[in-house]
Design a protein around this nucleic acid. Structure first.
Ligand code: MN
Ligand code: MN
Ligand code: ZN
Ligand code: ZN
Lengths: 137, 137
DNA sequence: TATTATATTGTAATTATTACAAATTAGAAA
DNA sequence: TTTCTAATTTGTAATAATTACAATATAATA
């Protein structure tokens, strides 16, 4: 069950620890772009001795190796995404959901040509999502 | 000198206060996408009784009316921009500078077509800027 | 199995933001 | 111009996210 994540870590020469495996598993199974606190609260239920610092550390390590990515879309806290390919996001100011928008940025070349070295690309849209639009209000 | 900002506020039916004028002036003259603290520290020099809460309030009001915009590019703190038109940004992880990238997002229609209502568009690139690339290291 | 560099834990410190009540003030009305 | 009042500013306290750090535990190697 966790083999998939063990493999991911070993491929990146990262030590395999239960905390890292559980963090990866949670992100893989919860594609809602959760906050550190959401991840921590959930995992703490199964492992009461879990420390929030470990979640911070694990996420940082996974991000450094490009296994996951972080989003700054909400401003007040970082959110994490198991999907590491470039894609865009839509944040609904009504319901708070963050929706994947499956598009590439056609402008990257423009940036590269201007002499900068691009490591991360983030496309964020904010507004009212389809569902909330239907509900009215 | 401040007439420009008085006009801006009156056009938006916002009460004209010295604090709001100074905040606007600072943002207009400092296109570095400053943090709340940077704005506060600078303005406090001229007006020692200035409260940081006022800066938070002023910025929020100006943003609500679309006079300025805020950036979540750095993750840990909000940054503000006098330029309210949609444009992209590049954050250099080396020197910390946030550079304007003057491009529109060609994807907005795609989002609109999918039924969402878009209020804000943010395009962030992160990496190493031209200048830092030249310097090496 | 023994060793050791690395990871985890728990706590404290730092930083950004928000909440809130008292004092002040901008702008409308008299 | 003066008076009035709702809105704004101030100062402080509370909350929330993140980072720092030292002691303990453990994964991976020999
Ligand atoms: Mn995503
Ligand atoms: Mn800008
Ligand atoms: Zn919604
Ligand atoms: Zn740079």
């Amino acid at each position: 069950m966790l083999e998939k994540y063990v493999k991911l870590l070993k491929e990146n020469s990262i030590k395999v620890t239960p905390q890292r495996l559980e963090t990866l598993k949670y992100l893989d199974e919860n594609r809602t772009h959760p906050t550190v606190d959401e991840i921590y609260s959930e995992l703490k239920e199964k492992n009461p001795s879990l420390s929030k610092t470990t979640i911070y550390n694990s996420l940082e390590t996974l991000k450094e190796h490009g296994i996951i990515q972080s989003l700054t879309i909400s401003g007040t806290e970082l959110r994490y995404d198991f999907e590491n390919k470039i894609h865009h996001h839509f944040l609904c100011k009504k319901c708070g959901n963050i929706i994947d928008i499956d598009i590439e940025c056609p402008n990257i070349n423009k940036i590269l040509n201007s002499g900068h070295e691009v490591e991360e690309v983030h496309g964020y849209f904010k507004g009212k999502c389809k569902k909330c639009m239907k509900k009215g209000s």
